[in-house]
Design a protein around this nucleic acid. Sequence first.
DNA 1: GAGTGGTCTAGACCACTAG
DNA 2: TAGTGGTCTAGACCACTCC
Lengths: 261, 261
Amino acid sequence: MPAALPTAAVFQPLAPDDTGMPLYRAVKRALLGAIQSGAYRAGQTLPSEAELAGAFQVSIGTLRKAVDELASEHIVARRQGRGTFVASLSRERSVLQFFNLEPDSGVRATPSSELLAFERVRAGAEAAAALGLREGDPLLQLDSLTSLGGAPVALERVSLSAAAFKGLAEKPLRERLAAQPGGLYPLYQSEFGLTVVRARERARTAAADRRAARALALPLGAPVLVVRRTAIGLGDQPVEFRSSLINTAQHEYVNLLEPPR
Amino acid sequence: MPAALPTAAVFQPLAPDDTGMPLYRAVKRALLGAIQSGAYRAGQTLPSEAELAGAFQVSIGTLRKAVDELASEHIVARRQGRGTFVASLSRERSVLQFFNLEPDSGVRATPSSELLAFERVRAGAEAAAALGLREGDPLLQLDSLTSLGGAPVALERVSLSAAAFKGLAEKPLRERLAAQPGGLYPLYQSEFGLTVVRARERARTAAADRRAARALALPLGAPVLVVRRTAIGLGDQPVEFRSSLINTAQHEYVNLLEPPR
DNA sequence: GAGTGGTCTAGACCACTAG
DNA sequence: TAGTGGTCTAGACCACTCC
């Protein structure tokens, strides 16, 4: 890992500000920009609060208020006595936040995924819109089967921009999925520097077609849940689009309705 | 509206604290307790920050940090120049937070509900568990049909503790639903002092039975979404349990996956 | 103009982590 | 023991709302 740049090379005192934006928000923006630009990577520590306050020439209280907001948005994490770290997506958190299928038994196990297919395709209208690309742009398309406690629960098709995921190849992906269960997001982060922080899902029902029925061990025409997800990264950019067919015979899709921030 | 009690009658200086809990958290707990106990009701203003800081004998900064957390949990809302208000559930917010069906057209309209049945029943195992009651305890059970832009989308069965909703009667309820679309939650708040702040939902698929097919204008056996919801109030107590059968032919169930707080 | 919440400062001291 | 984030204070001034 390369040594961090000197703080003064990254941050300068903030210029007086026409917009009437509070100072702590300007500080927050500067920090967020540095993180999104890659000057500090997932898991790295930021300079100490005292050092940052000095670089921006603001008081500690103001600096802390900026970091407070970044922490509440899970863009950084603080650890007393150690420092402030750029958010990284642990396997546990990835599962907690982005895998919301729960067996009726209530026992949550870590899901495992098997890669069924890996193709280069051209973007259709829906994937293009979700990923902010144009129709016909090159995509990587992964088909996978996710199981929980040995039973298949979801047949998934993941679409990724080929440009953003340049170098992703079938064989290492298959091996990685087999060796490290916990889904694709930790891999997006470690291999491509893309940290997924939130997602938007839309669900509806459909009748299982032959392919889904076979993969999910359901009768043809059985009702399945269809979930389409757009996952969003640290820089607010779309990272993946995925469509999942879910067997809810022994599992439920759980969702917490909390107040908007 | 009765005049608010003098602040000093509600809040005393905090006793020195054995637990090592930060002072601002103790302040937050005291404020939350006063709100949950009903000393301040939904929509009322709290005493000013200066007054509260004086009553608790803490600095303004500490008092503000306590209120910050309550505000971030949407338990109170601040308005500059006016004061700090106990959260109330506006019709708009109730719809935004607790109605997550979106038409494929993308145009979000306010849902309207029609009361189909109103009964007194005894709690079954599931409703009892969700509401923290015992099997056989008395419930009010409301059946309703929710429509969006004139088209029926959800057939719902709502279970309420008869003890908590004493006095709720069929006729005024029916009239209120017709006159004020926006669902039941604003009514829970204004008539029973119960403010719903969050909910947990579990979704799965099923085939429409005759009753559902007729109400939702679907063929018998068509796949429907079954959502079971437990709604939680300000005091962390369950307020209602509801089970909904949803027609997702022209609508989708949308869900934002955000980082946990 | 009086009263409210919002921002910002400049410190002090505490609790935790690591070498 | 040095360095980090966490808590707490006591003020000043600003922006907004209402009378």
